[in-house]
Design a protein around this nucleic acid. Sequence first.
DNA 1: CCCAAGCCTTGACATAGATCAACCCATGAC
DNA 2: GTCATGGGTTGATCTATGTCAAGGCTTGGG
Lengths: 249, 249
Amino acid sequence: MTRITSKFQTTHDCADCPIRHRAVCARCEADELAQLEQIKYYRSFEAGQNVVWAGDQMDFVASVVTGIATLSQTMEDGRRQMVGLLLPSDFVGRPGRNNSAYDVVAATDLVMCCFRKNPFENMMLRTPHIGQRLLEMTLDELDAAREWMLLLGRKTAREKIASLLCIIARRDASLQLRQSDGELRFDLPLTREAMSEYLGLTLETVSRQMSSLRKEGLIITEGKRHIIIPDFDSLLEETGDDSDGGFLV
Amino acid sequence: MTRITSKFQTTHDCADCPIRHRAVCARCEADELAQLEQIKYYRSFEAGQNVVWAGDQMDFVASVVTGIATLSQTMEDGRRQMVGLLLPSDFVGRPGRNNSAYDVVAATDLVMCCFRKNPFENMMLRTPHIGQRLLEMTLDELDAAREWMLLLGRKTAREKIASLLCIIARRDASLQLRQSDGELRFDLPLTREAMSEYLGLTLETVSRQMSSLRKEGLIITEGKRHIIIPDFDSLLEETGDDSDGGFLV
DNA sequence: CCCAAGCCTTGACATAGATCAACCCATGAC
DNA sequence: GTCATGGGTTGATCTATGTCAAGGCTTGGG
């Protein structure tokens, strides 16, 4: 776990630690180690590995430390729909339920910080702060899910692709601050297939629309996965979203 | 508000009252009247009326007492997607946010029980029980949203219609217990247009698929809105859902 | 009684995206 | 070097659903 311990310096609000890692922090470790010793542990997964399968027992809740995980549902005939995309600091698992309703899959190499479910639930009872934080996060996820429903139900393939690129670019930028002058660059953490599962499209359509955005200069690609967005606002206009989105706080 | 007071006899777990009405109960009124006097009030709406508009200030949270409300998002060019369907006992509003992100519309005549937001938030701080209940409800909504995403992203028009009918029939049955032998009957509380906004279809497609299910005997209609499902399981098979859905508890 | 407004249905036609298929390019095993 | 594999692209075709348009039924107002 060297990748994690190397981050112990990060300044960090300890109270948030059990349910939202920005990083794992030294102070928090010291403060809570006693009670957490038996509760908290780390697990690593390789890209493509399942963390749990839909229907399986899931005796832990967890938050993503590094990497990206997805939640997906599968229909009997194999049609799949992604229903959650977990970036670092995001939370999975549902207090008060013992089985996962979804496949949880590592989209990239992945490190998760897990908490055994029962002790975590007890901790929630003793520490209302944690429940409140969890409620806040769940409400955020619900909002994200509702945006996603608009995308799935009403957007064109091109709008879907543009939206996804903007979502990832935005999250990536806020995590890693990689812009240089107006230009945004990042590695797509998803295969074309994973993108198609996110967007409710086939992977061929994803590929075609990516090509089309590339031909029109809205994105530039280096290799298959590295994306450059020369002008974020132009791409935003292709999403069909209200331009002044963030007026809600 | 006679419709409400007439239900005061209903047995009811008081602790749940502030955030989930099964009915408004006398004991609860007595217990909490003092603190609630300034907090709690009722509002009625006619079918079609907006409760709030997306972006508007929303200084209350509320639960549905009778009738049905919808949450919808609209794109600049007018495309609309429903993202929430609120049946009696469901909750709207988000502690910690002052503006509604969605249009809230009365789909039928509607009575809501509202709580002023600030006092409600204070009450949440004093009463952890309420926060826990709200977390539970929010997690349920998130699960519902994720089912809905699968529907929007991957189901055919026919599967979408069958799913919607099953969802409403089930909720309606659990609320009102109206089955007689295997047969289920209920009034569709949604226009074809509202159904199309729910399902991410056009109203013409909704109409055609309803006709097709009718011709095949999977549903029977009396007038435009009254639906009879002669065999719920046959209809369920048209939804594409896993037959043994409810194994999670 | 007539008329307008909502809501719904049905038909004819257009099209976005799915499907099927071929092929390219890296990578890693042997 | 060869081969198999996984990921990605592109073309040709098909089809489910959208679009446009007409008309029916019910309700309520004048």
